[in-house]
């Protein structure tokens, strides 16, 4: 496969095989890394995530990858966070009270309401802000128990409803943070990843 390589942060808990396979189907090579320098310098980085908020934060700070990731987002360099890999950018989460997140987004992740099935497992609709370049309206696959409630200032977003209305994804230039799993969202997800690669490719390293 030619073209750019995407670097996937090895988190130890996330099942990264789906992410690697999704990029492979798009003809983009994916490599795994937990080296902060490699992650800071990579043209495109994906922060995948399953598992708990506290375990995710611990792992990122133990390897020093937290500072590399924060730096990338602050500088608007191509970065994609998925599921827990989105929530980790918040300041805190009700899942792990007292644990500080990366704090890039001024938000607290909250639990899905008691009136609906939790975890939310399955396909739900996102409605994207018309100004989005990477996100579109469509049906996407979720596997989450926590969520962010509002699109932060300076970002454009897509919203979903499961009991409450919550943030499906946000984008700011080549930085995209998704509560859903684009790598598991079939043709729609593949289209979204393709747009991210295209926009990321236009960003100088």
């Amino acid at each position: 496969m030619g073209g750019p390589t995407v670097t996937i942060v090895r988190t130890g808990t996330a099942n990264t095989a789906s992410v690697v396979a999704a990029f492979g189907r798009l003809g983009t090579r994916a490599v795994l890394s937990d080296d902060p320098d490699a992650i800071a310098g990579a043209p495109m980085v994906v922060l995948p995530g399953v598992g708990s908020f506290s375990a995710g934060v611990e792992r990122l700070s133990a390897t020093g990858v937290d500072r590399a990731i924060i730096g990338r987002v602050d500088q608007n360099r191509p970065t994609l966070g998925i599921c827990l890999g989105m929530q980790l950018f918040a300041g805190s989460s009700d899942e792990s009270p007292g644990v500080a997140g990366l704090g890039v987004i001024d938000a607290n992740a909250t639990a899905l309401p008691g009136s609906v099935s939790v975890p939310q497992l399955g396909w739900n609709r996102i409605e994207a802000d018309p100004g989005c370049r990477i996100l579109r309206n469509g049906e996407v696959y979720y596997a989450n128990s926590y969520k962010l409630d509002a699109v932060p200032v300076g970002w454009r977003g897509a919203m979903t409803t499961h009991g409450d209305r919550f943030v499906g994804a946000i984008e700011r230039g080549p930085v995209v943070l998704c509560q859903f799993h684009p790598e598991l969202s079939g043709a729609f997800g593949a289209g979204m990843l393709g747009r991210w690669i295209e926009i990321a490719g236009g960003v100088p390293c």
């Binding site: 789906s18 396979a21 999704a22 696959y141 799993h181 790598e183 598991l184 043709a187 997800g189 593949a190």
Partner: peptide, 12 residues
């Protein structure tokens, strides 16, 4: 499992 994983972009 690996073969199915590479073949599909939906959850397995």
């Amino acid at each position: 499992v690996a073969e199915v994983r590479h073949a599909v972009g939906i959850p397995v």
